[in-house]
Design a protein around this nucleic acid. Structure first.
Lengths: 201, 201
DNA sequence: CCAATTAGCGCACACATGTACGCTAAATCT
DNA sequence: AGATTTAGCGTACATGTGTGCGCTAATTGG
C-alpha cells in the first residue's frame, strides 16, 4: 500500500484546512463561512467534515494557530537577516511584516478579524499569538537597553500594536501606497523607541 | 392627530436602529445579525423593514454613523473639561474614551469589528470616523508645538491607534484591570509625544 | 483469515433566511 | 369629497444550513 490509513486521514485534514484558507478573502471572513462551503471546496461530503473536526470552531482555532505559526516563522527569518547585519532592525522587521501581509493576506485577515470576533476562544487565541511577539520584543529591549521591565513591556506593546495596525491598513491600499505606509509606521516606531528611552530611569 | 405620517415613520426608523444596537453584544456582531432578527426585536414584520432601509447594509452604515457621532460628542465634552483646566490633557482624553467603552460597549464593538469586516463600504465608514479624530488631533499638535505637518500627523495617527487599540483590549477585561490598561496606554502616549518632539526639526 | 474499526458517503429532516406579491387602512393631496 | 400615496402586514417560496442515521468499502489487528 502507498499510504497508511492515518496518513490518508491527515492528508484529508490538510485538504480541509487549505480549502478553508482558500475561501477566505476581503469579502469573506471565517465567521461567515459555512461547514458545507468548506466541505464543497475540499471535495468531501459535508458529514465527512466531522471525522476531522468537532465543528467549525475547532477548524477555526486550527487556522489561527497555523496563521500564527507562519507569521512567527517569517519573523524568525527576519531576525536572521538582522543578525547578519543587513540594515536597520526596525526597517527590516517592518519590511518583513509587510511582506507577510502581501503574501499571506488571508492568513493575516483571519488574525485581524478574529481578534475582535464574536468568539472569546478565538479572541484569546489571536491575543496569545500577539503576546508572543510582545514578550519576545520586550525581552530584547530589556536586555539591549537595560530598561526596567515595565518600560520595556509598554514599549514593546506599543510597537507591536502600531505594526499590526499598519498591517490592517495595508490590506486596503495599493502596493504603491504601502511604501508610504511603511514610512509612516517606521517613523512612529522611532517615536516610541525614542520616547521610551527618554522617559526611562 | 398627534403625529404626522412622516413623524411616525421616523419613529419606526429609530425603533429599528435601537433594536439593532440592542442585539449587538460580545457574542453577536452586526455581520451575523439577520434582517428578521432585527425586525422581530423592533416589533415589526420582516417585510416592513424595507420601508426604511434598502437592506441590512444600509442599516449598518447608519449604525456606524450613529456610533461615530456618539463618540465625537463625548470627546467634545472632554475637550471642554480640558479647557476648564481640570487635569492632564492625555489623562482626561483617555479617561473619557474609556468611559465611552464602558457605557457604549456595543457601539464601540461595531466600529471595532466593521473596521476589519467584509464590506469595504463599512471599513471606509469606520476609517472616516477615525480620520476625523486623527486630523483634529494633528491640527492641535501642529498648532501647539509648531511641528511640521507630517510629524504632527504621524504622531496623531499613532496616538489614535494606541487609544483605539486599548479600547479593544478593555472590552475583554474586568473593570479593575482597566485601570492598569489606562496606565499602560497613557504611558505609551507619552512615549509617542516625547519621541515625536525629540525627532522634530 | 476472520473480526473490528473507521473514513467517507447519501439521504433526510427541521429550521432560518431574504424577499416578491398583494392587501388594508390610514394619512395626505387636490 | 374623492383620489392617491404609503407604512405595515401575512402568505408563500426557493434556497442554504447543521447534523443524525445507517451503509459501504477498505484498512487494521488478532
Amino acid at each position: 500500500m502507498s499510504q497508511t490509513r492515518a496518513e490518508q486521514k491527515e492528508q484529508t485534514r490538510r485538504t480541509i484546512i487549505e480549502a478553508a484558507f482558500r475561501l477566505l478573502s476581503a469579502e469573506q471572513s471565517f465567521a461567515n463561512l459555512s461547514l458545507r462551503e468548506v466541505a464543497r471546496e475540499a471535495g468531501i461530503a459535508p458529514t465527512s467534515f466531522y471525522r476531522h473536526f468537532k465543528d467549525m470552531d475547532e477548524l477555526g482555532l486550527t487556522l489561527v494557530d497555523e496563521a500564527g505559526l507562519t507569521l512567527r516563522q517569517l519573523m524568525r527569518q527576519a531576525r536572521k537577516r538582522i543578525a547578519k547585519g543587513g540594515g536597520s532592525v526596525v526597517r527590516t522587521s517592518v519590511d518583513t511584516f509587510m511582506e507577510f501581509i502581501a503574501t499571506n493576506a488571508n492568513e493575516f485577515r483571519l488574525l485581524l478579524r478574529e481578534r475582535s470576533g464574536t468568539s472569546k476562544a478565538f479572541r484569546l487565541a489571536v491575543q496569545r499569538e500577539l503576546q508572543h511577539f510582545i514578550e519576545e520584543l520586550s525581552d530584547y529591549i530589556e536586555h539591549k537597553t537595560h530598561a526596567n521591565h515595565q518600560n520595556a513591556y509598554f514599549e514593546a506593546d506599543a510597537l507591536v500594536t502600531l505594526v499590526f495596525n499598519a498591517g490592517a491598513e495595508a490590506l486596503d491600499i495599493s502596493q504603491s501606497k504601502r511604501e508610504l505606509l511603511a514610512e509612516k509606521v517606521i517613523q512612529q516606531l522611532r517615536f516610541v523607541a525614542k520616547g521610551s528611552a527618554a522617559l526611562r530611569h
